[in-house]
Design a protein around this nucleic acid. Structure first.
Lengths: 219, 219
DNA sequence: TTACGGTTGGCAGCTTGCTGCCAGCCGATG
DNA sequence: CATCGGCTGGCAGCAAGCTGCCAACCGTAA
């Protein structure tokens, strides 16, 4: 494929047939951005890819996988991500949508997938440095603002109630004012603040504010 | 230019000659991501572009311009950004590097610039939806995590001293412990914390923590 | 030398935050 | 019906945070 060329294929079969050779060797870095882990139409393909990648990671390959919170929606996906992360891949979660899967291999080959159904969607493959470079930069920028999977705490207790408390805290209100606004007693408000502090694993309110922001819990 | 094609040109003259027609009409949306505003080799070109874009914004065009903090490095750039923002363009600053300028027009045409010197660099232009879509999504993701120009406070008073205080606060230490560690009295530590709170325009420590994080002041 | 401005540190008084305690209320269960 | 668990709200006691006050110290300038 000449350097300035782009090929577009439909479906995974055609992708493998026309561009599979480009993905044969991953030597240095594998970058992937997607909504969730259901990339390929067959879940077994995902397992096969992961099992091939793990030895490579041990040999020095850098794998960066960027997903949206949808990738943590069910236990299967989460389990898979924790598994690849434990194997050494860097996994981050970003809050913005990633409707098009983007894969960049060794900054040499780039695969862009349409937003369609995994089994029937259009793939664009290119080796053009003029295209890969800028996309890689944008991937990098998104990566930098994403939260490492390990740092991302699951906070199921972010009820509407807790969210209102975060709002009040973020507005700098005293407990008394905030409690009155919420229509609860000061003791109850403080009890809930203490719950929130515990959930944020924070010893001070400054630290809690910092963490709430880091975790994207601010309203 | 066929849909799946990409053209690569070197220099602005060749860009205008071979692809200038693609940029003739901007009807709906103009998205741009770059390190700073020194996009073109001639500053007068920047002024001319801005002066053409302002009436369009008033007619409903959405202009989104995404830069790194380098775009605020000098008064001239800052002044320009404040000007276009005042004219209705949305300007955001993102903390990650954007070494390749990326321009997407009406989601129809995309221009990717190499990282070279403005007067002598390579441009890649494409109208391929398979390419524009994913890049647009990554632009969007980066945009979402960037800070609106208006919200970005300049905080020159982040001395090494204040940074150490932020560290102590972020670690959840009590004032007494932090003061002792810094080798100052509790009164002095608290005096400095109060200075920091004032600088962060915060009424509570939670709010201060939140803002410090938002402003990227955390160590 | 003295005078001045800025900073520090100790102290005191106050407010805000933290949490235990206990009574009361409510819903669910046997 | 009684019992239980969970939650609420008032109160008290304490810790942490906030700030004014004043003396002491330091560097600088006249």
């Amino acid at each position: 494929m000449p350097n300035d060329q782009v090929i577009t294929v439909r479906g995974e079969k055609e992708l493998a047939a026309r561009a599979g050779h480009l993905f044969a060797g991953v030597n240095e870095e594998f970058c992937c951005a997607a909504t969730d882990v259901n990339t390929w139409s067959q879940p077994t393909a995902r397992v096969a890819i992961a099992s091939r990648m793990m030895p490579a990671i041990r040999s020095g390959l850098v794998a960066r996988k960027l997903y949206t919170p949808a990738a943590l929606a069910d236990d299967e996906q989460r389990g898979h991500l924790l598994q690849v992360a434990a194997a050494g891949a860097k996994v981050r979660i970003c809050d913005a949508g990633l409707p098009h899967e983007t894969i960049i291999i060794d900054r040499r080959v780039m695969l862009l997938a349409g937003p369609g159904v995994p089994g029937d969607r259009e793939f664009t493959v290119t080796t053009s440095p003029g295209l890969i470079g800028p996309v890689y930069a944008l991937f990098d920028a998104t990566w930098e603002s994403a939260v490492p999977l390990a740092d991302r705490r699951e906070l199921p207790m972010i009820t509407p109630d807790a969210r209102e408390i975060l709002r009040a805290l973020g507005a700098g209100l005293t407990d008394e004012v905030a409690a009155r606004r919420m229509g609860v007693s000061l003791r109850t408000y403080r009890r809930r603040v203490a719950d929130l502090m515990r959930a944020l694993d924070s010893d001070s309110r400054f630290q809690a504010g910092l963490r709430a922001g880091e975790l994207g819990l601010t309203p």
